[in-house]
């Protein structure tokens, strides 16, 4: 009888934990989803209805923001194309660099690995700061107003990603496989390209996604280094658009031209529409790689 009671109590405790977990997860999900829904509905609201504030169900629906975007389609499509190219190229380069850096760090017979690892991880905590970086990139590497501005600064290779890949190599690929390959006559490039990389698909996908998201969402590089509007990515374009709208809003209304422009512009809804447009590719790709992403994050973090 006592046993039976205990069992019921335990089950109650378990059920309580499950309900609590469910509530927490629902809250977390709402924190993520609500802004997205709001963003969508605001982008579909008429500008006049937004004066009173944002609403989940707009008092007046309107496609003005998207029509405004359609009118600017040439610029937006160019920015879109550029963002896609930068994301793909940047991700590929980033994956190659990260995995190539991680491979020697995972090799027990590579003696300076601890020193190099220290230097790498040091940069995770300390760096030169924005001004110094800006001067190095613009004066030494002359990346201003070129596509390199999106690819090189800060996003080519991160210490954290190298750490994840190195841990994956150490924890999931038996060292004897590397030794077997060496005895089969394979040199380091063959071992890296034919064995290590194909065996590291989950972590590569994870790092690839981190990197791709980083490139896709990167607007700071454009603000710092790009003046040529033809080289705007979608995020930079969005930022510039927001800034322009802000400028119009805060400027003296006695100026007739500004007043006109302000009246004809779908300001708030246009901001949200651009954000929605920028988000679409991520929303499409994410469900397909979600499994691998989680797997990679778990296996990469198993061992320190």
């Amino acid at each position: 009888m006592a046993k039976h009671k205990n069992k019921i109590q335990l089950m109650k405790g378990e059920a309580g934990f499950h309900y609590l977990a469910l509530v927490v997860m629902i809250l977390l999900m709402l924190f993520c989803v609500v802004p997205l829904v709001l963003m969508l509905t605001v982008s579909l609201s008429s500008e006049a209805s937004l004066v009173k504030g944002y609403r989940f169900i707009p008092s007046a629906w309107s496609l003005d923001a998207y029509l405004f975007m359609w009118a600017k389609r040439a610029t937006i499509l160019r920015a879109y194309g550029l963002t896609i190219v930068i994301t793909i190229v940047g991700t590929i380069i980033s994956l190659i660099m990260t995995s190539m850096f991680a491979y020697p760090l995972s090799r027990k017979d590579f003696k300076p690995r601890n020193v190099i690892a220290f230097i790498l991880f040091f940069t995770m905590l300390f760096n030169g700061g924005m001004v110094a970086s800006y001067m190095v990139w613009t004066r030494l590497f002359h990346i201003k107003d070129s596509l390199w501005a999106y690819l090189l600064p800060g996003s080519l290779m991160g210490g954290m990603n190298v750490l994840l890949v190195r841990n994956y190599f150490n924890a999931n690929i038996p060292y004897s496989i590397i030794e077997a390959a060496r005895l089969d006559g394979a040199h380091d490039w063959t071992i890296y390209s034919k064995i290590m990389v194909p065996l590291s698909k989950p972590i590569m996908i994870t790092i690839g996604l981190f990197s791709a998201l980083g490139y896709w969402n990167n607007w700071t590089a454009g603000i710092y280094y790009i003046n040529n509007p033809k080289l705007y990515t979608i995020q930079v374009y969005l930022k510039k658009l927001m800034d322009s709208i802000q400028f119009l809003k805060t400027t003296d209304l006695s100026n007739e031209a500004v007043l006109l422009a302000q009246r004809s512009l779908p300001t708030e809804s246009a901001r949200m529409a651009v954000a929605i447009i920028a988000l679409i590719p991520v929303l499409i790709v994410y469900p397909f790689i979600q499994k691998e992403l989680i797997k990679g994050m778990v296996v990469g973090g198993v061992k320190g």
Partner: peptide, 20 residues
């Protein structure tokens, strides 16, 4: 002399086959 340059081959206890 490095292992890859020795013209030796080795069979491991845990097989060490390439899983991919």
């Amino acid at each position: 002399v490095k292992p890859e340059d020795r013209d030796v081959a080795m069979v491991f206890q845990n097989y060490s086959l390439y899983p991919n």
